[in-house]
């Protein structure tokens, strides 16, 4: 157990509305080692994104234990979460969520710059990552000037800029055509392998899911190995 980078034990998450209580996660258990990859499939609304948000420190949970690296999220305060997110986690979303007022290079460099990396180094790091994702030529373009695939490549470079231990990708190819999806798949499993990050991705795409070391299906609030 001690060599796990991610450990979820009996994770429970409910959403309460006026009408009902939605039991989204009913006891999720997950163990992942550093540098491994894992895919989570499941129908829409099954709780894939919620699980990723919890592991990423974006969402709280009702009970259970979640440990990522040296951070025990179940005992982390709200004030400690930003530090955890900036140091340990990189996010890739379905809709890229690049900052519209920043160029591709600035979008990638900003998280490092925010994290205390000197400007010159942050920009150099971003440039190097953009080159690795095949975006060197487009680094000065703004998100509105990029195609969907280019935006997602930029988002992947952004997720990697702080050399996180964990990359959480929520439907990273959900909005892309087949060719772009294939390119993103190669990046998702290629670059983190070099950096040593653990990848968890939530997807509807069986081909993408197949490429991961471990595969799970989230159903009835529990993870079933595939």
């Amino acid at each position: 157990m001690s060599d796990s980078i991610i450990s979820c034990r009996n994770l429970i998450k409910n959403f309460e509305s006026q009408a009902e209580i939605l039991h989204v996660l009913r006891g999720v258990d997950l163990e992942l080692t550093p540098g491994s990859s894992c895919s989570i499939m499941g129908s829409s609304g099954s709780g894939k994104s919620t699980l990723l948000s919890i592991i990423g420190g974006l969402e709280g949970f009702d009970s259970g234990e979640v440990t990522v690296g040296s951070y025990a999220l179940h005992s982390l305060s709200e004030k400690e979460l930003p530090k955890y997110r900036s140091c340990l986690v990189g996010f890739v979303f379905q809709f890229h969520y690049l900052l519209k007022d920043f160029s591709a290079l600035e979008n990638v460099a900003l998280p490092a710059y925010m994290n205390g990396v000197p400007r010159k180094e942050a920009w150099a790091r971003a440039e190097s990552l953009l080159e690795k994702v095949g975006m060197a030529e487009r680094k000065d373009h703004f998100p509105t000037e990029l195609s969907g695939g280019e935006r997602q490549r930029t988002a992947i470079a952004r997720a990697l800029v702080n050399a996180p231990s964990v990359i959480l990708a929520d439907e990273p190819t959900g909005n892309l055509d087949a060719d772009n999806a294939q390119a993103i798949q190669e990046l998702m499993f290629g670059l983190p392998a070099i950096s040593g990050a653990t990848v968890i991705l939530a997807t509807h795409d069986p081909r993408l899911a197949e490429a991961a070391d471990k595969r799970f299906f989230l159903s009835e609030g529990r993870l079933q190995p595939l």
Binding site: F91, D101, M114
Partner: peptide, 16 residues
């Protein structure tokens, strides 16, 4: 709101 959410996901606090 989405830009702010992204910055928060990258480690920015409400105060930032």
């Amino acid at each position: 709101m989405s830009d702010i959410a992204v910055l928060k996901a990258c480690g920015a606090t409400d105060g930032d």
